[in-house]
Computed example of a mutant assay.
Amino acid sequence: MNGLAGKGFFIWKIQDCEGGNPQAIAEAAQRAGFTHVLIKIADGGWPVNIDRKTNTDLLPPVVQALREKNIRVWGWHYVYGNDPLAEANVAIRRIQQFQLDGYVVDAEIEYKQAGRDRAARRFMGKLREALPNIPIALSSYRFPSYHPQLPWKTFLEFADYNMPQVYWEKAHNPEAQLRRSVREFQNMTPFRPVIPTGPTYKTGGWAPTEQDILEFLRTVQALGLSGVNFFSWDECRKQTPALWDVIAQFSWSPQPPPPDIVDLYFQALNLHDPSLMLHLYHPDAVHITPARVIQGSQAIRAWYTTLFNDLLPQASFTLTHTTQSGSTRHFNWTAQSGNATVKNGADTFGIMDGKIAYHYTNFTISA
């Protein structure tokens, strides 16, 4: 599977983008610095972007024009779940026909009905059987906690990417909403790399601002995500062209992901400062050792003061192994302090809002 990175845009109706001119679409995408474009290929069990008057398929010249500019072409498909095999078959046919670089399944309210997990498994299983090497992404709601009925785990089991629709409608807080979306999916099993989709349309008197879009893009990079998408080309170029300009002018240079809290913890440990340790903890954090349980900032500060001053003064702490599962971290460590050593450090963090909410530690100091 080739990794997907950079800026991309969803196309709904080809004829509503650059007058339906394939060369104009490709040139606009190239000028904007897009690495990929996602075009609707089907709705339910039917192919779309076909001129019904002439029965002409509009995809081939657009796919060719984009490929000539070295822009990847993905197909996207709105699914209902009433006839999952028919929906899978039309997707497979369209993907194979145009040798598309990837496929996005857009599953929303219809898949919240009872019994849709079975439909999702049949649909995704059929896709994977026929397209074992094609990257597949799920496009759905931004906050899974709001939509527990959707068979998230089944879709993501077969998917390579998660493309949540982070549409901050009626608000102007894209950073907060994107961070929450990513955090919720990080706490879900299975986790798939997130490539979020932002809004560039108007609805009910609301529209994103230019500052919104810039904040969204900057947050994507700050989170170390590999790519970003927007919806949709059709509406943006006509209704909100200033937003297109912001996206086009934004230089895509992803920042490395921020250090994990375990790395920050060991940086602070080796500075031997209890105040620095407290910055990593939730104010009501619980710290558990084999000897006792303590809670709250003052008790945790006192524990680290004793550790640094009495138990392991001027120690050098070394992380030897770490594993991550959602909001949980397990890690092992050693320490050397004069003649005192620790060879069997074993800790677990529970993370909430980026802070340590609970911390279990177990270690033996030996001379």
Rank of each mutant, 00 (worst) to 15 (best):
M1R: 13
N2E: 13
L4I: 13
G6Q: 07
G6D: 05
G6L: 08
G8P: 00
F9P: 09
F10A: 00
I11D: 11
W12A: 11
K13F: 07
D16F: 13
C17N: 12
E18L: 11
E18R: 15
E18S: 14
G19W: 14
G19A: 14
G20A: 15
N21H: 12
N21Y: 01
Q23C: 14
Q23P: 00
A24C: 14
I25A: 14
A26Q: 10
A29V: 11
R31M: 14
A32I: 11
A32L: 11
G33F: 08
F34Q: 10
F34M: 07
T35N: 13
V37A: 06
L38V: 06
I39Y: 03
K40P: 10
K40F: 04
D43A: 13
G44I: 03
G44N: 07
G44K: 00
W46Y: 06
P47R: 10
P47Q: 05
V48C: 01
V48N: 03
V48S: 08
I50F: 05
D51K: 02
D51W: 06
T54Y: 12
T56I: 11
D57L: 10
D57C: 15
L58D: 12
L58S: 09
L59G: 02
P60W: 04
Q64W: 01
R67W: 00
E68T: 11
N70V: 02
I71V: 12
R72M: 10
R72Q: 01
W74R: 00
G75A: 04
H77A: 06
H77I: 01
Y78C: 07
Y80I: 11
G81C: 03
D83K: 10
L85S: 12
